[in-house]
Simulated assay, not measured.
Amino acid sequence: MLRRFRSALIVLSVLALAACGEGVVKRVSEPATSLQQLTVNADGSWKVALRLQNFSSMPMRFDDLALTLTIGDAAAGTLAAKPGVSISGVSADVIELQLQPSAEARLVVAGALADNHTLAYTLEGSVSATPEDKKQRTFQVKNRSNLNHAPGLPGVLR
């Protein structure tokens, strides 16, 4: 019995030491973007809370983005920024942008708010990010999702 216990302990110790030698695998994955919130301002412009998702196993600095926003079937405009934010691995952060949307997109959003219905959107374009200790890369991203009226918050879609 004691001999079995010693053998099992030795095997477990060897396996534990072998696992320590592997270290963390650093993997760079394509990031994702989505709208976390869209707020219609009094002047008709929009405040857009844009979620940047880092799926890499290491931190990445998001340097530049240019995304075309389509609301329903209406081209709303381009979200462009140089956020310069670092996001740790497998994590996300939100940046706020201002947008002067097209007249057609304003009408689509106003209709969704008035009728309290779901609103489809598409974000498509490029995001430039720099992985930790590596050179900057540009990723092509495309995301289709929906926004819903935020209860109790007039002019807000989430």
Rank of each mutant, 00 (worst) to 15 (best):
T118C: 05
A16T: 14
I71R: 00
N143Y: 08
L38G: 01
M1T: 10
T118F: 04
A49G: 04
R51L: 12
G44H: 07
A103T: 14
A75R: 11
G21E: 12
E30V: 08
Q140I: 07
V127Y: 00
R3D: 11
R158C: 06
Q36S: 14
K134Y: 10
Q36I: 03
S13A: 15
G89D: 08
R51H: 07
P154M: 09
S57K: 03
D43S: 11
T33V: 15
K47H: 07
R27E: 15
A112E: 02
L157S: 01
E132N: 07
V108G: 01
G152Y: 06
L99I: 08
R61W: 02
E22D: 02
P83L: 13
L67E: 07
A114S: 11
V109K: 00
S34A: 15
L147V: 10
L2F: 14
A150S: 13
R51W: 04
A18W: 10
L52I: 12
S128C: 11
N54A: 11
L69M: 13
A120G: 05
R27P: 01
E104G: 04
S56F: 04
N148F: 11
A8Y: 06
R51E: 14
D73A: 14
E96S: 15
P83W: 04
K47C: 05
Q136Y: 04
T138G: 07
S128Y: 07
T118I: 09
E96R: 11
P83Q: 08
S13Q: 04
D73E: 13
V48Y: 01
A129P: 01
K26R: 12
E22T: 10
P59R: 07
A129N: 02
Q37K: 13
A105P: 01
E22W: 12
L147T: 03
L35E: 00
T130G: 06
L153S: 11
A76F: 03
V28M: 04
Q98N: 14
A42I: 05
V109W: 00
P31V: 04
N146V: 12
G89T: 09
L35V: 08
G89E: 07
L99N: 05
L69A: 03
T122D: 14
G84H: 08
L15W: 04
D115M: 06
T68E: 14
A129F: 04
M60Y: 02
G21P: 00
V108E: 00
L52S: 01
T122Y: 02
E22N: 04
L119G: 00
G111V: 03
A74L: 09
T118Q: 14
M60L: 08
Q37G: 03
L107T: 09
D115R: 13
T39H: 09
A105G: 08
D115E: 12
A105K: 01
P31T: 05
D63G: 05
S128H: 05
S145F: 10
Q140F: 14
V28L: 07
T70Q: 13
L113N: 03
V108M: 02
S86V: 15
V156L: 05
W46Q: 02
G84S: 09
H149V: 15
M1C: 06
L99Y: 05
Q140H: 11
L15V: 15
V48H: 00
P154E: 11
N54T: 05
K82R: 15
L157D: 01
Q36Y: 13
V127P: 00
A19T: 12
L79F: 08
